[in-house]
């Protein structure tokens, strides 16, 4: 098992997993507080259409996925402003349309269907040095932006009207959150895959919610749970020869179950 740690592809996957996992864990808390998990799911799944477009036109499918995810995030934000339909209805439309488009386009590009399982469930062999650099850059940007607007985003989650009355530029902050979230989700697809990318966002935050009483604690615990899930999940996937995404998510789910039991026990104590 130690041997695997010396393999460059595994080191890359671990590094990228840790960086993206930490970011997703922090975003996850904001997503949980805003009850936006379905939104994140829609963005994640929309990447499938972008990946398919990338395959068809011959660019890196993950670049296609990233661009498409950001476009869908902005699209949902835009349509939300002009439509009176409830947000979950709009999301369901975007979600299904993107997946349908993705599947149709992938079917139209023969020869690549074998890769579908990688896109859907993650494949650490696809993680490149460029991904390490990109993830690092994204982590610096996200960290900086969240230090700058993080309190505003929490204030919006608490009560958007109150935040707006206090002069928080609610619209701009929300847009910033959506773009950063879409990019982080799209980057994470290589490690965990489209189907389970939302789990990397939600499970650590949900477990942290069970463990911590304060908001600062919730952010901290979410990152800890994410890091443990990524490290244990990746090692287990290498040893058991299982897909990385589901193994990481299963590890996170076990931690969540433990946190739930701990909460119940301490609640009744």
């Amino acid at each position: 098992m130690i041997e695997i740690l010396t393999l460059p592809f595994f080191q890359r996957a671990l590094l990228v997993g840790l960086m993206l996992g930490s970011m997703m864990a922090v975003f996850g808390v904001l997503v949980l507080l805003r009850r936006m998990s379905f939104f994140a799911d829609a963005i994640g799944h929309s990447a499938l259409a972008g990946i398919a477009i990338g395959l068809l036109v011959g660019i890196d499918p993950f670049v296609g996925g990233l661009v498409f995810a950001v476009a869908v995030a902005l699209g949902i934000a835009g349509v939300r402003r002009i439509s009176t339909l409830p947000l979950d209805t709009l999301l369901a439309v975007f979600f299904s349309a993107s997946v349908a488009l993705g599947v149709v386009l992938i079917t139209l590009s023969p020869g690549y269907q074998a890769d579908l399982i990688s896109f859907l469930f993650g494949n650490i062999l696809t993680v490149t040095n460029a991904d390490v650099v990109l993830s690092f850059g994204m982590m610096i940007i996200t960290g900086g932006v969240l230090l700058w607007v993080g309190k505003g985003l929490v204030a919006i989650a608490l009560d958007a009207s109150l935040a707006k009355a206090e002069g928080v530029p609610v619209g701009r902050y929300e847009l910033l959150l959506l773009i950063l979230l879409a990019v982080t989700i799209a980057l994470s697809i290589k490690v965990v895959g489209i189907v389970l990318v939302t789990a990397l966002l939600i499970i650590p935050a949900a477990a942290a919610h069970n463990i911590s009483r304060s908001l600062a604690g919730m952010f901290g615990w979410s990152v800890v749970v994410s890091i443990v899930s990524v490290v244990v999940g990746l090692l287990a996937s290498a040893v058991l020869d299982t897909p990385s995404g589901p193994t990481i998510v299963l590890t996170g789910s076990i931690i969540f179950a433990i946190s739930l039991v701990t909460r119940r026990l301490s609640g009744t104590a």
């Binding site: 929490v154 989650a157 009560d159 009207s161 911590s212 304060s214 908001l215 604690g217």
Partner: peptide, 18 residues
Amino acid sequence: LISYIPQRLAFDDHFPLT
């Protein structure tokens, strides 16, 4: 110059803010 106190806050029962 101003402050606003809404009728009720929109946060849910489990919002972990002290």
